[in-house]
Amino acid sequence: MTKADLVESVYARLEGFSKKETADIVESIFETMKDTLGQRDKIKISGFGNFVVRYKKPRRGRNPKTGEAIEISERFVLTFKPSQVLKNALNV
């Protein structure tokens, strides 16, 4: 499934909107989510899950290929925690 498929699903349910307008609305959903997560705020979508930005301290790691010790820089990572509703939906 891609964004284009989502546009089709939304288009089928919206009345009075062109394909282009529908695509703009769908685009705005992901852009708004990216803006929010870009500010490191979390997003909670009931029935789907939570997107949370977490801080990771710098740490020593190893290049798994060469075994060489390397410094892994500090960073922010995005985690997705699926809701119980979604987990149940996948295990019926």
Partner: peptide, 18 residues
């Protein structure tokens, strides 16, 4: 329209994952 779109997007994603 935004409400319908947001709900449809997440519902469709749940269906796809199912």
């Amino acid at each position: 329209a935004v409400e319908t779109a947001v709900n449809t997007v997440f519902d469709s994603m749940v269906e796809a994952l199912q």
